[in-house]
């Protein structure tokens, strides 16, 4: 058939040779998945895990995020020892938590604490998607609520960096209720005139996007971050049509009026400092 003839067919596949693989010691170099530039991992780290040539934002750990924001030595962590239980007696859940604790050296999917950003005090919470995909169970909800209460008590702004696949399935309806719990805490903060800045990072979806992450006085997002309520696959199955490539990206949300700004990680500290300054005046 002519149709088949016109269809583009991939004729060759490139298989990296064993030698090519061996030439680069593991971890020394990193290839940008967006522009394919190869760079030193160390330099990438120094650049806050942002690709120097195309601006692609790599994943960053929660503690790296604190380092990138807080003035040196100002960080005090809250509730570091809090860990999850298995309220539904869900098979293998405890093992999974234990495995993630080992793998990430985190106790849960969020780190909270206080510190100063160019001299301005703030309570900051950072989610880490390496732990159970950043999903929100009882511990994440509780730590956020306590952090918000701290910010009320201290009279300083609350800033949250979200990165989450949504609610934690294994804690069932208790996870769902954390959406109400965190939102109630933010309501209290808001009623008392407190400032909340939400920064959505890749990915912020499901119950996290549909609760605290969307409730900032200012809602920001990192470039290209995936943000949305329902999963792309579920939507495609529901509406039976393909979605545009930029669907549910930070830029898509900005275009549809859901965000205040898309902010590069390299400019985050400066932006936050300016906002904290405006609010402090």
């Amino acid at each position: 058939m002519l149709k088949d003839f016109l269809k583009k067919k991939k004729r060759y596949a490139t298989i990296p040779s064993e030698r090519a693989k061996q030439e680069v010691p593991e971890g020394l170099m990193t290839k940008c998945p967006s522009c394919r530039t190869i760079m030193y991992t160390k330099e990438l780290k120094n650049n806050l895990h942002v690709c120097d040539s195309c601006g692609h934002h790599f994943r960053m750990t929660a503690y790296e995020r604190f380092d990138s924001l807080f003035d040196e030595g100002s960080f005090v962590e809250f509730d570091k020892n809090m860990i999850g239980e298995n309220p539904l007696n869900f098979p293998t859940y405890e093992e999974k938590l234990e495995a993630d604790r080992k793998k990430t050296e985190l106790n849960e999917a969020i780190v909270t604490g206080k510190g100063t950003i160019n001299g301005y005090g703030a309570v900051v919470a950072v989610m880490d998607p390496r732990f159970r995909m950043g999903s929100m169970g009882s511990v994440v909800g509780e730590k956020i609520m306590r952090a918000v209460e701290q910010s009320i008590e201290m009279g300083v702004p609350f800033i949250l960096f979200s990165a989450s696949g949504g609610a934690r399935m294994q804690e069932g309806v208790l996870s769902l209720m954390q959406m109400a719990k965190t939102s109630a805490a933010l309501e209290k903060l808001s009623r008392q005139g407190g400032l909340f800045i939400s920064v959505m990072t890749h990915p912020t979806t499901g119950g996290v996007s549909a609760s605290f992450a969307s409730l900032g006085d200012y809602n920001f997002a990192e470039p290209k971050a995936l943000i949305g309520f329902a999963g792309r696959r579920i939507i495609e199955q529901t509406i039976r049509q393909e979605l545009p490539d930029d669907f549910q990206t930070a830029e898509f949300l900005l275009k549809h009026g859901q965000l205040d700004r898309v902010v590069s990680r390299l400019e985050m500290k400066e932006l936050l400092t300016t906002i904290l300054d405006i609010h402090a005046s």
Binding site: G84, E85, E142, L174
Partner: peptide, 9 residues
């Protein structure tokens, strides 16, 4: 809502 959730240390 504050009281909903289970965790330990």
């Amino acid at each position: 809502y504050k009281n909903i959730g289970q965790f330990t240390y």
